[in-house]
Design a protein around this nucleic acid. Structure first.
Length: 749
DNA sequence: GTTCTAGAAC
DNA sequence: GTTCTAGAAC
């Protein structure tokens, strides 16, 4: 496992220097006439805060069409001025693009944006356009496009591009416009191929075969200059800042053994790599669980040796985030000593959640150094993988198992809805739990390395067994032939739970899953969900109103059945009732409840409720004044939570001392001191003026802790509370005006 | 909404 | 080691 600090280096994963200065970008637009290249660049330039120049061959000669040489010269000038440039010409084949890839040398990023619309569409567009300009007869325009179609050769990373974006429809184009348009002068984009259809490779291959231009394998390796450029032996770490992406990748690749005939192309984003099933795995138990590195590296090599004969052409890759990783170098050395085939097993530096997009290494399976609860969090690889894979992985994991014992693993097919599937091509995650030697962590084995080594061996056996089962059951075919990963072919180890708590969780699991995830299970079951599930899903889609958990019903119950709660009610009428907040967050903290059934929160309010809100405010204000008469040092705000936790519309009347043992966390604080708290007077005014209330996102609740008076920031709740106990700064003018703050010195009464 | 607690932060 | 947060469970 990697430490979380290392995960933080994600943005500059290699040396941390990559992003220090941002290079201008040469964006080579690729597309037929009428594909929208000019529109694309215009759109980006319109919204971008970054300096751009559009180099358009059609207009470069004082509005008339010019030459490629002119384009190169204008582009070079723009780059010298620090501008990024769009090369707005068809750039339909490799040869046309090659010279633009030399622009600015290594000081520029080279991108391609492919506007790959159907030729029919391009023709109809360019016919219209040329008709307008009167340059070409419609028929001629069609002929020009048609002539170009067979020459179309999609760009590849091996040509020297750092990044290629394929757009197949208007939605893709819009997305790409946003991506480039929102780049600030300091931003850079991740390297790699984005949006490529699986069929592209085949079409491309067909064209190439037809033209006999390129090695039909489609490999960049057919280009000797690239191969040489990529030779790991020619690199040293110090060169990284000026290296281009393809070099970075190969530098990141720490091949086991001394051979340098490694198929770099298979790791540079070329399609051929996608066809080799590859398991990327972190070193298990050596980070957080403090397993001895020497022993761990022995076990890794031993287990790799045992399994390497069983995985066919598939590959195992030990991954670590840091360049100087001890475990990588130990394993590398030991694997070389044992002459393990370095094409099938090697070590690799990179973020395991971004091996394809950042490092060009496609791994269809990744291992996760999981925790026993199979839950996100905990830092390191586990946190990173769950974060990168999104909720889809959590749900898919729950489908397979709820806990894991040390030495065991569980194979989880990754739903296509997961970003890891879409971006990285990961089809399976194998969670594996190693032995813990860290006394600070649960289930520590103390120094029992006899037991520890046994469990670590089991862990790798289980992991590799899982990978073997994936390779054997569907392997290559599953990676790209379907829109979603196939179910694992039988292998999985669902761990029987062995203590009461775990057993309880497992028992709860079924009912909980049906409660929480019924709407999401469509992703998991490929149209084969049971009738029962479908009924539940339909129910959910019909009933769109928010459902409230049982604990959130308390206020509703009081409002509907006040007789049952006489002891807590301070005042009651037909419309409203007043009660103390059960967990007051300040010296004085009341709730004024609406007694109408069906008004759960401020989201249900519209103009017709203004009289009710005015009543609630008047009642609340009356109590605030009463409290002020008892203690003139207090001040009050009356307002609603944008998104309340408890059902039944309720107005908070809360003194601004926030002196309470019940105020314990950030959510408490921010729910009363950020825009999440909607002042009653403001809500009423908004309803009267525009007929609806603007709610605030619950992002407010995660904001930093700031004093509500002087706005100073504080690192944690205790420090904040200590500060507010003495801060006497005046409240903001905004609060003092408009009657939002009720105090004895205020203007309200 | 609170309580409980693992694990992050110090 | 203690303090504090944040997520899960209710």
């Amino acid at each position: 496992m990697m430490e979380s600090m290392e995960i933080d280096r994600e943005k500059a994963p290699f040396t941390g220097e990559e992003n220090k200065e941002t290079k201008p970008i040469v964006v080579v637009l690729v597309g037929l006439p009428g594909s929208g290249k000019s529109t694309f660049s215009d759109e980006v330039m319109r919204i971008s805060s970054r300096p751009w120049a559009r180099v358009c061959q059609d207009t470069i000669n004082n509005g008339k069409s010019g030459t490629k040489i002119q384009c190169l010269s204008v582009a070079a000038t723009a780059l010298k001025d620090g501008k990024s440039v769009f090369i707005d010409r068809c750039n339909i084949d490799r040869e046309q693009r090659a010279d633009f890839l030399k622009l600015g040398g290594q000081q520029t990023e080279k991108h391609a944006v492919v506007l790959d619309h159907p030729a029919k569409l391009c023709i109809s567009r360019s016919v219209k356009r040329t008709g307008h300009e009167g340059n070409l007869q419609g028929g001629k325009a069609a002929a020009v496009v048609n002539q170009m179609v067979p020459k179309k050769e999609l760009p590849k990373l091996s040509e020297g591009f750092d990044r290629i974006t394929f757009c197949h429809d208007e939605r893709d184009v819009k997305e790409a416009v946003n991506v480039y348009g929102s780049l600030s002068p300091l931003d850079s984009l991740p390297s790699g191929c984005f949006g490529q259809k699986k069929s592209d490779a085949k079409i491309q291959l067909g064209i190439m075969k037809f033209l006999k231009k390129v090695d039909p394998s489609g490999n960049a390796g057919s280009d000797p200059t690239v191969r040489q450029k990529c030779s790991p032996n020619k690199l040293s770490v110090g060169e990284d800042t000026v290296l281009q992406r393809s070099k970075m990748d190969s530098a990141a690749l720490e091949k086991v053994g001394k051979s340098n005939e490694l198929d770099i192309t298979s790791t540079s984003g070329a399609n051929s790599a996608n066809s080799i099933p590859t398991l990327a795995f972190p070193s298990i138990s050596t980070a957080d669980f403090q397993f001895n590195l020497e022993k761990a590296s022995d076990i890794i090599v031993e287990k790799v040796e045992e399994f390497i004969g069983r995985i066919g052409k598939a590959r195992l890759v030990l991954v670590d985030l840091s360049q100087g990783s001890k475990i990588l170098s130990l394993v590398k050395t030991k694997a070389a000593q044992k002459n393990i085939d370095s094409n099938k097993f090697f070590t690799f530096v990179g973020d395991i959640t971004r091996l394809h997009s950042q490092r060009g290494l496609h791994c269809n399976v990744i291992a996760n150094a999981a925790n026993w609860r199979l839950k996100p969090g905990g830092g390191g690889v586990n946190a990173a993988i769950f974060k990168a894979a999104g909720s889809a992985l959590e749900i898919a994991t729950k489908e397979k198992a709820v806990s894991l014992s040390p030495g065991k693993s569980v194979v989880v097919p990754l739903p296509s809805s997961s970003p890891l599937f879409a971006r990285e091509g990961v089809t399976h995650v194998i969670h594996v739990l190693g032995p813990n030697m860290n006394p600070m962590r649960p289930d520590c084995l103390k120094d029992d390395y006899v037991q520890g080594c046994k469990i670590l061996r089991e862990a790798y056996s289980s992991l590799f067994e899982g990978f073997v089962s994936i390779v054997r059951s569907h392997g290559v075919a599953s990676i790209h032939n379907s829109g979603r990963p196939l179910e694992s072919g039988g292998f999985q180890e669902v761990i029987p739970t062995n203590d009461d708590q775990k057993a309880k969780r497992e028992a709860d699991y079924e009912s909980e899953r049906s409660k929480k995830y019924k709407g999401l299970r469509l992703d998991l079951k490929s149209g084969a969900s049971s009738l029962m599930d479908e009924e539940k899903i339909q129910d959910k889609s019909v009933n769109m109103t928010k459902s409230w958990a049982s604990w959130a019903q308390a206020l509703h119950d009081v409002a509907m059945h006040p007789n049952k709660h006489k002891n807590v009610i301070l005042e009651i009428s037909d419309d409203v009732l007043v009660m103390n907040d059960a967990y007051p967050k300040a010296q004085r903290h009341l709730l004024v409840l609406a007694r109408v059934d069906g008004l759960d929160s401020i989201a249900d309010i519209c103009r017709e409720h203004v009289p009710l809100l005015k009543t609630m405010h008047a009642v609340g204000l009356k109590w605030a004044v009463k409290f002020l008469n008892e203690n003139k040092s207090l001040s009050f705000r009356l307002g609603y939570h944008s998104v309340p936790s408890m059902r039944q519309l309720h107005l908070h009347v809360i003194s601004q001392d926030f002196d309470s043992i019940h105020l314990k966390n950030k959510k408490h604080w921010n729910s009363f001191t950020t825009p999440f708290f909607l002042d009653s007077v403001v809500v009423i005014k908004e309803l009267e003026d525009v007929g609806r209330v603007t709610l605030k996102d619950d992002k407010c609740l995660a904001m930093e802790l700031r004093c509500h008076r002087c706005r100073s920031a504080h690192p944690n709740i205790p420090r904040l509370k200590s500060h507010i106990s003495s801060c006497q700064a005046p409240f903001s003018a905004d609060l003092l005006q408009n009657g939002r703050l009720v105090s004895s010195t205020g203007t309200d009464f």
